[in-house]
Design a protein around this nucleic acid. Structure first.
Lengths: 198, 198
DNA sequence: CCTTTATTTCTACAAGTGTTGAATATGTCT
DNA sequence: AGACATATTCAACACTTGTAGAAATAAAGG
Protein backbone atom coordinates (compact mmCIF):
# COMPACT_ATOMS: atom_id res chain seq x y z
CA UNK A 1 0.00 0.00 0.00
CA UNK A 2 2.96 2.30 0.55
CA UNK A 3 3.17 4.01 -2.81
CA UNK A 4 6.45 5.92 -3.22
CA UNK A 5 5.99 9.47 -4.44
CA UNK A 6 8.21 12.44 -5.14
CA UNK A 7 7.85 15.58 -3.07
CA UNK A 8 5.40 18.16 -4.33
CA UNK A 9 1.70 18.52 -4.74
CA UNK A 10 0.05 15.56 -6.47
CA UNK A 11 -1.66 15.93 -9.82
CA UNK A 12 -5.13 15.06 -8.66
CA UNK A 13 -6.04 16.05 -5.11
CA UNK A 14 -8.72 13.42 -4.67
CA UNK A 15 -6.64 11.39 -2.21
CA UNK A 16 -7.50 13.18 1.06
CA UNK A 17 -4.44 12.12 3.00
CA UNK A 18 -5.67 13.80 6.18
CA UNK A 19 -8.55 11.36 6.34
CA UNK A 20 -6.26 8.41 5.68
CA UNK A 21 -3.95 9.55 8.47
CA UNK A 22 -6.86 10.01 10.87
CA UNK A 23 -8.14 6.57 10.03
CA UNK A 24 -4.78 4.90 10.61
CA UNK A 25 -4.21 6.86 13.80
CA UNK A 26 -7.60 5.93 15.25
CA UNK A 27 -6.92 2.28 14.68
CA UNK A 28 -3.41 2.41 16.15
CA UNK A 29 -4.39 4.39 19.24
CA UNK A 30 -7.07 1.79 19.94
CA UNK A 31 -4.76 -1.15 19.28
CA UNK A 32 -1.49 -0.03 20.83
CA UNK A 33 -2.32 2.78 23.24
CA UNK A 34 -1.01 6.32 23.22
CA UNK A 35 2.70 5.88 23.91
CA UNK A 36 3.28 2.93 21.62
CA UNK A 37 1.54 4.70 18.77
CA UNK A 38 4.35 6.69 17.17
CA UNK A 39 4.03 9.35 14.52
CA UNK A 40 6.24 7.25 12.28
CA UNK A 41 3.96 4.24 12.71
CA UNK A 42 0.89 6.27 11.88
CA UNK A 43 2.62 7.68 8.82
CA UNK A 44 3.77 4.28 7.64
CA UNK A 45 0.35 2.78 8.21
CA UNK A 46 -1.20 5.56 6.13
CA UNK A 47 1.47 5.27 3.44
CA UNK A 48 2.67 8.80 4.07
CA UNK A 49 5.68 10.75 5.27
CA UNK A 50 5.81 11.49 9.03
CA UNK A 51 6.13 15.20 8.41
CA UNK A 52 2.79 15.16 6.66
CA UNK A 53 1.16 14.04 9.87
CA UNK A 54 2.66 17.01 11.65
CA UNK A 55 1.67 19.28 8.80
CA UNK A 56 -1.98 18.40 9.18
CA UNK A 57 -2.31 17.97 12.92
CA UNK A 58 0.50 19.99 14.48
CA UNK A 59 1.53 17.54 17.16
CA UNK A 60 0.75 14.13 18.57
CA UNK A 61 -1.72 15.31 21.17
CA UNK A 62 -3.82 17.16 18.62
CA UNK A 63 -3.70 14.14 16.35
CA UNK A 64 -5.16 12.03 19.14
CA UNK A 65 -7.87 14.58 19.89
CA UNK A 66 -8.79 14.63 16.21
CA UNK A 67 -9.42 10.88 16.29
CA UNK A 68 -11.97 11.20 19.08
CA UNK A 69 -15.47 11.35 17.79
CA UNK A 70 -18.45 11.62 20.07
CA UNK A 71 -21.33 9.41 19.15
CA UNK A 72 -24.28 11.19 17.59
CA UNK A 73 -27.04 8.62 17.91
CA UNK A 74 -27.42 9.42 21.55
CA UNK A 75 -29.51 12.55 21.33
CA UNK A 76 -32.59 10.93 19.95
CA UNK A 77 -32.22 7.96 22.24
CA UNK A 78 -32.43 10.23 25.25
CA UNK A 79 -35.70 11.71 24.12
CA UNK A 80 -37.26 8.28 23.86
CA UNK A 81 -36.27 7.35 27.38
CA UNK A 82 -38.49 9.78 29.24
CA UNK A 83 -41.55 8.13 27.77
CA UNK A 84 -40.54 4.62 28.70
CA UNK A 85 -41.76 3.00 31.94
CA UNK A 86 -39.23 2.66 34.71
CA UNK A 87 -39.11 -1.11 34.55
CA UNK A 88 -37.73 -1.03 31.01
CA UNK A 89 -34.95 1.52 31.51
CA UNK A 90 -32.24 -1.06 31.89
CA UNK A 91 -33.09 -2.78 28.65
CA UNK A 92 -33.52 0.45 26.71
CA UNK A 93 -30.33 2.13 27.85
CA UNK A 94 -28.15 -0.91 27.49
CA UNK A 95 -29.56 -1.16 23.97
CA UNK A 96 -28.42 2.41 23.31
CA UNK A 97 -24.95 1.74 24.66
CA UNK A 98 -24.72 -1.44 22.63
CA UNK A 99 -25.70 0.34 19.45
CA UNK A 100 -23.36 3.25 20.12
CA UNK A 101 -20.54 0.78 20.47
CA UNK A 102 -21.30 -1.15 17.33
CA UNK A 103 -21.58 2.00 15.25
CA UNK A 104 -17.88 2.70 15.19
CA UNK A 105 -17.36 4.66 18.35
CA UNK A 106 -16.16 1.56 20.16
CA UNK A 107 -12.74 2.11 18.64
CA UNK A 108 -12.75 5.66 19.96
CA UNK A 109 -13.74 4.50 23.42
CA UNK A 110 -10.96 1.93 23.51
CA UNK A 111 -8.49 4.58 22.37
CA UNK A 112 -9.58 7.00 25.06
CA UNK A 113 -9.41 4.37 27.80
CA UNK A 114 -5.96 3.23 26.71
CA UNK A 115 -4.69 6.80 26.46
CA UNK A 116 -6.14 7.63 29.88
CA UNK A 117 -3.71 5.18 31.38
CA UNK A 118 -0.79 7.43 30.55
CA UNK A 119 -2.22 10.83 29.61
CA UNK A 120 -4.21 12.74 32.22
CA UNK A 121 -5.67 14.87 29.44
CA UNK A 122 -7.23 11.77 27.93
CA UNK A 123 -8.72 10.83 31.28
CA UNK A 124 -10.23 14.28 31.38
CA UNK A 125 -11.68 13.65 27.94
CA UNK A 126 -13.29 10.46 29.20
CA UNK A 127 -14.94 12.41 31.98
CA UNK A 128 -16.22 15.10 29.68
CA UNK A 129 -17.36 13.05 26.73
CA UNK A 130 -18.67 9.90 28.28
CA UNK A 131 -19.79 11.06 31.70
CA UNK A 132 -20.90 14.67 31.32
CA UNK A 133 -22.02 14.67 27.69
CA UNK A 134 -23.39 11.16 27.46
CA UNK A 135 -24.40 9.35 30.63
CA UNK A 136 -25.28 12.26 32.86
CA UNK A 137 -27.80 13.66 30.35
CA UNK A 138 -29.32 10.21 30.04
CA UNK A 139 -29.77 9.88 33.78
CA UNK A 140 -30.93 13.48 34.10
CA UNK A 141 -33.90 12.69 31.92
CA UNK A 142 -35.15 10.14 34.43
CA UNK A 143 -36.99 10.64 37.69
CA UNK A 144 -34.46 9.36 40.19
CA UNK A 145 -32.32 10.68 43.02
CA UNK A 146 -28.50 10.54 43.23
CA UNK A 147 -28.17 11.25 39.53
CA UNK A 148 -24.39 11.84 39.56
CA UNK A 149 -23.69 8.68 41.49
CA UNK A 150 -25.77 6.58 39.12
CA UNK A 151 -24.21 8.22 36.08
CA UNK A 152 -20.73 7.55 37.41
CA UNK A 153 -21.63 3.93 38.05
CA UNK A 154 -22.86 3.64 34.49
CA UNK A 155 -19.59 5.05 33.22
CA UNK A 156 -17.70 2.60 35.43
CA UNK A 157 -19.67 -0.27 33.97
CA UNK A 158 -19.10 0.97 30.44
CA UNK A 159 -15.36 1.46 30.95
CA UNK A 160 -14.97 -1.84 32.78
CA UNK A 161 -16.90 -3.84 30.22
CA UNK A 162 -14.86 -2.32 27.41
CA UNK A 163 -11.64 -2.88 29.31
CA UNK A 164 -12.19 -6.57 29.96
CA UNK A 165 -13.55 -7.32 26.51
CA UNK A 166 -11.47 -5.14 24.22
CA UNK A 167 -8.21 -4.75 26.10
CA UNK A 168 -7.92 -7.83 28.27
CA UNK A 169 -9.62 -9.83 25.54
CA UNK A 170 -11.73 -12.00 27.73
CA UNK A 171 -14.19 -13.04 25.03
CA UNK A 172 -13.06 -16.60 24.57
CA UNK A 173 -13.26 -17.11 28.29
CA UNK A 174 -17.02 -16.70 28.38
CA UNK A 175 -19.09 -19.41 26.75
CA UNK A 176 -22.40 -17.63 27.30
CA UNK A 177 -24.27 -16.44 24.22
CA UNK A 178 -24.49 -12.76 23.41
CA UNK A 179 -28.17 -12.77 24.28
CA UNK A 180 -27.42 -13.91 27.82
CA UNK A 181 -24.64 -11.38 28.23
CA UNK A 182 -26.93 -8.57 27.13
CA UNK A 183 -29.56 -9.75 29.54
CA UNK A 184 -27.17 -9.54 32.47
CA UNK A 185 -25.84 -6.21 31.27
CA UNK A 186 -29.36 -4.80 31.11
CA UNK A 187 -30.15 -6.11 34.58
CA UNK A 188 -27.11 -4.33 35.97
CA UNK A 189 -28.08 -1.05 34.30
CA UNK A 190 -31.57 -1.46 35.69
CA UNK A 191 -30.14 -1.92 39.19
CA UNK A 192 -27.92 1.13 38.84
CA UNK A 193 -30.86 3.28 37.76
CA UNK A 194 -33.65 2.06 39.97
CA UNK A 195 -32.03 0.75 43.15
CA UNK A 196 -33.48 2.46 46.21
CA UNK A 197 -30.80 4.41 48.04
CA UNK A 198 -31.06 5.93 51.47
CA UNK B 1 16.07 11.70 50.28
CA UNK B 2 18.66 11.28 47.55
CA UNK B 3 21.74 10.59 49.63
CA UNK B 4 24.89 10.64 47.51
CA UNK B 5 27.17 7.70 48.04
CA UNK B 6 30.41 6.48 46.57
CA UNK B 7 30.47 3.22 44.67
CA UNK B 8 31.16 0.12 46.71
CA UNK B 9 29.48 -1.97 49.29
CA UNK B 10 28.02 0.05 52.15
CA UNK B 11 29.28 -0.37 55.71
CA UNK B 12 26.02 -1.59 57.14
CA UNK B 13 23.78 -3.62 54.87
CA UNK B 14 20.58 -2.73 56.68
CA UNK B 15 19.36 -0.50 53.87
CA UNK B 16 17.65 -3.11 51.67
CA UNK B 17 17.76 -1.13 48.48
CA UNK B 18 15.80 -3.76 46.57
CA UNK B 19 12.79 -3.10 48.78
CA UNK B 20 13.16 0.65 48.37
CA UNK B 21 13.31 0.25 44.62
CA UNK B 22 10.26 -1.98 44.59
CA UNK B 23 8.35 0.48 46.70
CA UNK B 24 9.18 3.41 44.45
CA UNK B 25 8.44 1.40 41.33
CA UNK B 26 5.04 0.28 42.59
CA UNK B 27 4.02 3.82 43.28
CA UNK B 28 5.26 5.15 39.93
CA UNK B 29 3.65 2.37 37.87
CA UNK B 30 0.35 3.16 39.56
CA UNK B 31 0.72 6.92 39.17
CA UNK B 32 2.24 7.26 35.70
CA UNK B 33 1.57 3.99 33.89
CA UNK B 34 4.07 1.60 32.39
CA UNK B 35 5.62 3.64 29.59
CA UNK B 36 6.01 6.88 31.48
CA UNK B 37 7.65 5.07 34.38
CA UNK B 38 11.32 5.02 33.38
CA UNK B 39 14.11 3.13 35.06
CA UNK B 40 15.83 6.43 35.72
CA UNK B 41 12.74 7.82 37.45
CA UNK B 42 12.42 4.76 39.63
CA UNK B 43 16.10 4.98 40.53
CA UNK B 44 15.90 8.66 41.36
CA UNK B 45 12.75 8.17 43.39
CA UNK B 46 14.49 5.45 45.38
CA UNK B 47 17.68 7.49 45.75
CA UNK B 48 19.71 4.95 43.83
CA UNK B 49 21.69 4.52 40.63
CA UNK B 50 19.73 3.25 37.60
CA UNK B 51 22.09 0.34 37.10
CA UNK B 52 21.23 -0.91 40.55
CA UNK B 53 17.64 -1.35 39.42
CA UNK B 54 18.86 -3.49 36.55
CA UNK B 55 21.16 -5.37 38.86
CA UNK B 56 18.33 -6.47 41.09
CA UNK B 57 15.52 -6.98 38.59
CA UNK B 58 17.17 -7.66 35.25
CA UNK B 59 14.88 -5.56 33.07
CA UNK B 60 11.88 -3.30 33.20
CA UNK B 61 9.30 -5.99 32.61
CA UNK B 62 10.56 -8.11 35.48
CA UNK B 63 10.63 -5.05 37.69
CA UNK B 64 6.96 -4.50 36.96
CA UNK B 65 6.08 -8.12 37.63
CA UNK B 66 7.91 -7.90 40.94
CA UNK B 67 5.66 -5.04 42.02
CA UNK B 68 2.50 -7.06 41.51
CA UNK B 69 1.28 -8.61 44.69
CA UNK B 70 -1.85 -10.70 44.84
CA UNK B 71 -4.05 -10.00 47.79
CA UNK B 72 -3.95 -12.64 50.52
CA UNK B 73 -7.04 -11.80 52.53
CA UNK B 74 -9.21 -13.36 49.90
CA UNK B 75 -8.81 -17.02 50.81
CA UNK B 76 -10.56 -16.86 54.12
CA UNK B 77 -13.25 -14.59 52.71
CA UNK B 78 -14.18 -17.23 50.17
CA UNK B 79 -14.70 -19.86 52.85
CA UNK B 80 -17.12 -17.63 54.67
CA UNK B 81 -19.22 -17.04 51.61
CA UNK B 82 -20.56 -20.57 51.19
CA UNK B 83 -22.24 -20.33 54.56
CA UNK B 84 -23.93 -17.03 53.89
CA UNK B 85 -27.50 -16.86 52.57
CA UNK B 86 -27.94 -15.88 48.95
CA UNK B 87 -29.59 -12.57 49.73
CA UNK B 88 -26.45 -11.30 51.46
CA UNK B 89 -23.89 -12.24 48.82
CA UNK B 90 -23.76 -8.80 47.29
CA UNK B 91 -23.02 -7.11 50.59
CA UNK B 92 -20.47 -9.69 51.66
CA UNK B 93 -18.48 -9.79 48.47
CA UNK B 94 -18.41 -6.08 47.94
CA UNK B 95 -17.12 -5.86 51.50
CA UNK B 96 -14.31 -8.24 50.58
CA UNK B 97 -13.40 -6.24 47.49
CA UNK B 98 -13.53 -3.02 49.46
CA UNK B 99 -11.21 -4.37 52.13
CA UNK B 100 -8.83 -5.86 49.58
CA UNK B 101 -8.57 -2.46 47.97
CA UNK B 102 -7.93 -0.55 51.15
CA UNK B 103 -5.25 -2.98 52.30
CA UNK B 104 -2.65 -1.81 49.82
CA UNK B 105 -3.42 -3.89 46.78
CA UNK B 106 -5.35 -1.05 45.24
CA UNK B 107 -2.07 0.43 44.08
CA UNK B 108 -1.21 -2.87 42.42
CA UNK B 109 -4.57 -3.02 40.69
CA UNK B 110 -4.20 0.50 39.35
CA UNK B 111 -0.72 -0.35 38.11
CA UNK B 112 -1.92 -3.47 36.33
CA UNK B 113 -4.83 -1.66 34.69
CA UNK B 114 -2.61 1.17 33.52
CA UNK B 115 0.02 -1.22 32.22
CA UNK B 116 -2.63 -3.29 30.44
CA UNK B 117 -3.31 -0.30 28.25
CA UNK B 118 0.05 -0.66 26.57
CA UNK B 119 1.44 -4.08 27.52
CA UNK B 120 -0.50 -7.17 26.47
CA UNK B 121 1.43 -9.17 29.08
CA UNK B 122 -0.04 -6.98 31.79
CA UNK B 123 -3.53 -7.52 30.42
CA UNK B 124 -2.85 -11.23 30.65
CA UNK B 125 -1.82 -10.73 34.26
CA UNK B 126 -5.12 -9.01 34.96
CA UNK B 127 -6.96 -12.01 33.57
CA UNK B 128 -4.96 -14.48 35.59
CA UNK B 129 -4.74 -12.71 38.91
CA UNK B 130 -8.05 -10.96 39.20
CA UNK B 131 -10.33 -13.14 37.14
CA UNK B 132 -9.02 -16.68 37.44
CA UNK B 133 -7.38 -16.53 40.87
CA UNK B 134 -9.74 -14.15 42.58
CA UNK B 135 -13.24 -13.68 41.22
CA UNK B 136 -13.79 -17.03 39.55
CA UNK B 137 -13.02 -18.96 42.77
CA UNK B 138 -15.41 -16.69 44.63
CA UNK B 139 -18.23 -17.34 42.19
CA UNK B 140 -17.41 -21.02 42.00
CA UNK B 141 -18.16 -21.35 45.67
CA UNK B 142 -21.74 -20.26 45.09
CA UNK B 143 -24.70 -22.19 43.75
CA UNK B 144 -25.38 -20.37 40.51
CA UNK B 145 -25.28 -21.00 36.78
CA UNK B 146 -23.19 -19.11 34.22
CA UNK B 147 -20.28 -18.84 36.61
CA UNK B 148 -17.75 -17.54 34.06
CA UNK B 149 -20.09 -14.86 32.80
CA UNK B 150 -20.83 -13.62 36.30
CA UNK B 151 -17.16 -13.67 37.26
CA UNK B 152 -16.24 -11.69 34.16
CA UNK B 153 -18.94 -9.15 34.97
CA UNK B 154 -17.53 -8.81 38.46
CA UNK B 155 -14.07 -8.21 37.04
CA UNK B 156 -15.54 -5.63 34.66
CA UNK B 157 -17.17 -3.83 37.55
CA UNK B 158 -13.98 -3.94 39.57
CA UNK B 159 -11.83 -2.65 36.71
CA UNK B 160 -14.34 0.00 35.73
CA UNK B 161 -14.83 1.27 39.26
CA UNK B 162 -11.08 1.50 39.76
CA UNK B 163 -10.65 3.16 36.40
CA UNK B 164 -13.16 5.93 36.97
CA UNK B 165 -12.14 6.57 40.56
CA UNK B 166 -8.37 6.15 40.52
CA UNK B 167 -7.44 7.01 36.96
CA UNK B 168 -10.13 9.38 35.74
CA UNK B 169 -10.36 10.80 39.24
CA UNK B 170 -14.08 11.23 39.37
CA UNK B 171 -14.33 11.48 43.16
CA UNK B 172 -15.07 15.16 43.44
CA UNK B 173 -17.84 14.77 40.91
CA UNK B 174 -19.94 12.60 43.17
CA UNK B 175 -21.44 14.22 46.21
CA UNK B 176 -22.92 11.00 47.59
CA UNK B 177 -21.49 9.69 50.83
CA UNK B 178 -19.32 6.57 50.88
CA UNK B 179 -22.10 4.64 52.58
CA UNK B 180 -24.46 5.30 49.69
CA UNK B 181 -21.81 4.40 47.13
CA UNK B 182 -21.13 1.11 48.89
CA UNK B 183 -24.83 0.38 48.99
CA UNK B 184 -25.17 0.78 45.24
CA UNK B 185 -22.00 -1.20 44.64
CA UNK B 186 -23.33 -4.05 46.75
CA UNK B 187 -26.65 -3.99 44.92
CA UNK B 188 -24.86 -4.34 41.60
CA UNK B 189 -22.80 -7.27 42.83
CA UNK B 190 -25.98 -8.87 44.10
CA UNK B 191 -27.55 -8.46 40.68
CA UNK B 192 -24.55 -9.94 38.93
CA UNK B 193 -24.59 -12.97 41.19
CA UNK B 194 -28.26 -13.70 41.56
CA UNK B 195 -29.96 -12.39 38.43
CA UNK B 196 -31.96 -15.15 36.74
CA UNK B 197 -30.56 -15.88 33.28
CA UNK B 198 -32.16 -17.97 30.60
C1' DC C 1 46.16 -11.00 54.70
C1' DC C 2 44.44 -12.19 50.44
C1' DT C 3 41.00 -13.78 47.39
C1' DT C 4 36.35 -13.77 46.32
C1' DT C 5 31.85 -11.90 46.20
C1' DA C 6 28.13 -8.55 46.79
C1' DT C 7 26.84 -3.82 46.32
C1' DT C 8 27.04 0.46 44.18
C1' DT C 9 28.34 4.07 40.87
C1' DC C 10 30.05 6.25 36.47
C1' DT C 11 30.05 6.24 31.61
C1' DA C 12 28.25 5.22 27.34
C1' DC C 13 25.97 2.99 23.35
C1' DA C 14 22.49 2.03 20.04
C1' DA C 15 17.90 2.65 19.06
C1' DG C 16 13.78 5.25 18.94
C1' DT C 17 11.14 9.56 20.01
C1' DG C 18 8.58 14.06 18.77
C1' DT C 19 9.55 17.65 16.07
C1' DT C 20 11.74 21.05 12.63
C1' DG C 21 14.18 23.17 8.38
C1' DA C 22 14.61 23.14 3.88
C1' DA C 23 13.58 21.68 -0.60
C1' DT C 24 10.47 20.30 -4.44
C1' DA C 25 6.54 19.88 -7.18
C1' DT C 26 1.88 21.09 -8.17
C1' DG C 27 -2.27 23.88 -7.96
C1' DT C 28 -4.61 28.58 -7.68
C1' DC C 29 -5.11 33.41 -8.07
C1' DT C 30 -4.20 37.91 -10.27
C1' DA D 1 3.05 34.45 -16.97
C1' DG D 2 4.31 35.31 -12.42
C1' DA D 3 3.42 35.26 -7.39
C1' DC D 4 1.76 32.78 -3.82
C1' DA D 5 -0.16 28.97 -1.26
C1' DT D 6 -0.62 23.89 -0.69
C1' DA D 7 0.92 19.30 -0.49
C1' DT D 8 4.58 16.30 -0.05
C1' DT D 9 9.21 14.36 0.86
C1' DC D 10 14.10 14.00 2.71
C1' DA D 11 17.33 14.69 6.16
C1' DA D 12 18.44 15.77 10.62
C1' DC D 13 18.48 17.66 15.54
C1' DA D 14 18.05 17.22 20.34
C1' DC D 15 16.48 14.33 23.61
C1' DT D 16 15.06 10.13 26.13
C1' DT D 17 14.89 5.34 26.42
C1' DG D 18 16.38 0.51 28.07
C1' DT D 19 20.42 -1.62 28.81
C1' DA D 20 25.55 -3.11 29.21
C1' DG D 21 30.76 -2.71 30.43
C1' DA D 22 33.85 -1.70 33.58
C1' DA D 23 35.46 -0.04 37.71
C1' DA D 24 35.35 1.14 42.76
C1' DT D 25 34.49 0.02 47.44
C1' DA D 26 33.60 -2.85 51.33
C1' DA D 27 32.15 -7.16 53.48
C1' DA D 28 32.94 -12.32 53.92
C1' DG D 29 35.60 -16.51 53.87
C1' DG D 30 39.83 -18.95 53.87
Amino acid sequence: MTVKRSPGRPRSSNSDRAQQILHAAGRLFADLGYDKTTIRLVAESAGVDPKLVMHYFGNKQRLFIATVKVPREVGKAIALLKLAPKSTWGKRISEVIWIAQKSGSLQTLVGVIRASASEPEAAEMFRQFYLENLLLPIVSGLEVDHKELRAVMMSSLMAGYTFTHQIVGIEDFVTAKEKTRKQLFAAIVQTILSQDLK
